[in-house]
Design a binder for these strands. Structure first.
Lengths: 246, 246
DNA sequence: CGTCACTTTGAACATCTTCAAAGCACGTGG
DNA sequence: CCACGTGCTTTGAAGATGTTCAAAGTGACG
């Protein structure tokens, strides 16, 4: 298998956007076959190892990324403060497009959590596509608005929910991206990250997270085995995720 | 002076977008004179009293607003949780445009904090303008991206800064919108909101806010007089706003 | 088989919330 | 003009929640 020298850890793969299994998922869904062919022609694909950075806060924006397979964490560091993991991005979602739509480079970093295949579109090419497809421009706008809504919701949750509820929410969210089948049956969930990453995602400390998960296991909600846990009581977990009104 | 019956508390005012003192500030700055004239023709203007809502979470989106003069708070309620005041919007800024750029109605409410004059552009008219001016579309996209950045930063601050630092930041931000002149001199700042609103903005409780501000006064940082405070020690306040690394 | 990073545990402590009650401030109606 | 209500603000005391620092355990991987 050919290994271009371009990247020390990445490996080029031939992927066809038109037949990409994620075609219907990502924002490109609004493109017609012609535009899709153009996208396919200008994109490049790379494999990433766990722990690699797709882009880095403070660097200039190089373009937009699309996750063909894998999981990526978007993290942000406000200089003197601990970093916050803002969101997880999964297979079939795009990544870093915000930085292409305004000046000023990357305001977040994107770190690969598990071996992933990620496509890349140069910013100039993206701009050509945007000029060609008003639908794509509208779609990116809508995605941006949706991200803003989601971030505002996350802010409310961090502000008002106890750690335990936030843990419950995260586990349920991850369960949706792990081939969740039987909603009420015991379900395995993989946690594709360290406890430290998970703590950053929940805006707490690893110690607190450990204690909280131990308590949840003691209460019969979870079975905890490192990076592979099982939900023992889905309804109870749902209840924890959305606790009493104030 | 004519008082149309259209609104019980509002009063129509004749404002000319082309000569609006805020013309250079808001997103409309990218419009040329022709487009500006169109904007001027389709907008309507209303006076709002303190406490009125410009739009309400859950309602369909009616269009975009532009604050000719005044201050508005954007708040969000995640159903069972206390509401969070997401941001303040000041004279010369636009409001509610996000809801026009995606489906699903208003995800926030906008509440007027002091008597204000606010212009309104129907969503259909906005869409016509957007189709006419690609620059405006790009500008809204950029603003959306900037809002997302700001909200992410706010999340990091809520997650990691103590209440006292957040109070300091808020006061310094408000000082910028109160004709701040001498950076290092004692400076009066008006707080155009209740302590409850301020607490929601800082994601804390009114009691905590009171105590924190009392402590800051005791430490010689502020002089506290209800809705009109004075910064006694600007450099010290700046230091509090950006505390030690972790 | 040792090293290094990650995870877990413990104990003390800081911060913030909660609940309850009193003090103020402002506008309304007598 | 004053009495009165309502909502905002302040204060107090108790308690929950989460953090910090230190150290021991665990596991992956060379």
């Amino acid at each position: 298998m050919a290994r271009p020298a371009a990247s020390k850890s990445g490996r080029s793969v031939a992927l066809d956007c038109l037949h990409c299994p994620t075609r219907g998922t990502a924002e490109w869904a609004v493109l017609n076959d012609d535009e899709m062919a153009e996208l396919n022609a200008v994109k490049s694909t790379r494999d990433y190892q766990k722990g690699e950075y797709v882009y880095t806060q403070g660097q200039p924006c190089t373009g937009v990324y699309c996750i063909a397979a894998g999981t990526v964490a978007v993290r942000r560091a406000e200089p003197p403060l601990p970093t916050v993991l803002m969101r997880l991005v999964f297979t079939g979602q795009i990544l870093g497009y915000r930085h292409c739509l305004r000046e000023g480079g990357c305001s977040t970093s994107a770190k690969v959590l598990e071996p992933s295949t990620i496509c890349h579109v140069e910013i100039a090419q993206l701009q050509r596509l945007l000029r060609r497809s008003r639908a794509l421009q509208g779609q990116l706008q809508a995605s941006l608005a949706a991200d803003l809504d989601a971030t505002e919701a996350a802010l409310a949750h961090v502000a008002w929910l106890p750690v335990r509820s936030r843990v419950a929410r995260l586990i349920l969210e991850l369960a949706q991206h792990n081939g969740s089948r039987h909603a009420e049956v015991m379900q395995e969930v993989s946690l594709p990250m360290t406890r430290r990453d998970m703590a950053e995602l929940l805006c707490t400390r690893p110690e607190t997270l450990t204690r909280t998960m131990a308590a949840m296991e003691a209460d019969g909600l979870l079975q905890n085995a490192g990076h592979r846990i099982a939900i023992a009581d889905v309804p109870a977990l749902r209840r924890e995720a959305q606790p009493a009104a104030v």
